[in-house]
Design a binder for these strands. Structure first.
Lengths: 129, 129
DNA sequence: ATGGGGGTTCCAGTCACGGGAAGGTCAAGG
DNA sequence: CCTTGACCTTCCCGTGACTGGAACCCCCAT
């Protein structure tokens, strides 16, 4: 399979697939004309990567997870550890965003949103507390 | 005031303050020795920027908000519009992260986390529905 | 021969800075 | 007067995970 077909099958942009090859996540073969030739296992890997990325794992996490995936003797504890660390990051981010949303929500509610210049949002940013 | 003092007062790293000057968000004066000299209004602006950034506004949003802040004839509707657009982004991000967290949470719960290789997390990533 | 739709590489840009090098400036202490 | 150390300056590179675009090659159908 050429890169276009793989892109269609996996939903990953061709650019992204090339990038993944660049950083060593997949190693497709090459045809005589220089085109990448992807085997089933390459496509499988790319699907794995796509799903892991969709869950927010970093590329380095993906590398780790792939290695575990391919290691028949892995301990599930190692996988779980990576997943838990990642979930902690996500929860921290959610907490940050929730705090922002709450503050913004209050400010937006307090703002008349008309053609007058008085604005609690700007007052708050200006340090009026 | 020199940049170090401003950094202490605003909590912004000196690097960040220089960057903000680079992109035209503040325009401190210069002493004969080349040092930046910040006036009260510069410090005030930087505090404004710090708070806006803490609420997650992009630099471009900050630029817009600053302009509105300094425009006595602004309409609060314009401010509110920027804030609402930003809040929509935040909420979208929260939704994404919540979805990730939920999926991860299920997978983590299902994973034994022991020294055996069986792992529902990897099975899921590997495409086994 | 030509046109179009593949593919290839490489370079630059994104966003909002942070790290670090190489060097100028200033106040205090010996 | 000299040194030390804490400031300050500019400049350039790196971050993460790509995306856009240029310039070029390849293959098939008309």
């Amino acid at each position: 399979m050429n890169i276009g077909d793989v892109s269609n099958q996996t939903g990953l942009p061709a650019k992204t697939i090339r990038y993944y090859e660049d950083i060593g996540l997949v190693k497709p073969l090459r045809d005589d004309n220089g085109y990448r030739r992807f085997r089933r296992q390459d496509v499988h890997k790319l699907n794995f990567l796509g799903r892991a990325r969709a869950l927010g794992f970093t590329i380095e996490d993906c590398r780790t997870l792939m290695a575990l995936y391919e290691d028949e003797t892995r301990a599930s504890a190692d996988v779980k550890k990576v997943a838990r660390a990642h979930m902690a990051q996500i929860e921290a981010k959610i907490a940050d965003l929730n705090a922002m949303r709450d503050t913004l929500s209050h400010l937006i509610d307090a703002c008349a949103g008309d053609d007058r210049p008085d604005c609690p949002i700007l007052q708050d940013l200006g340090g009026k507390a």
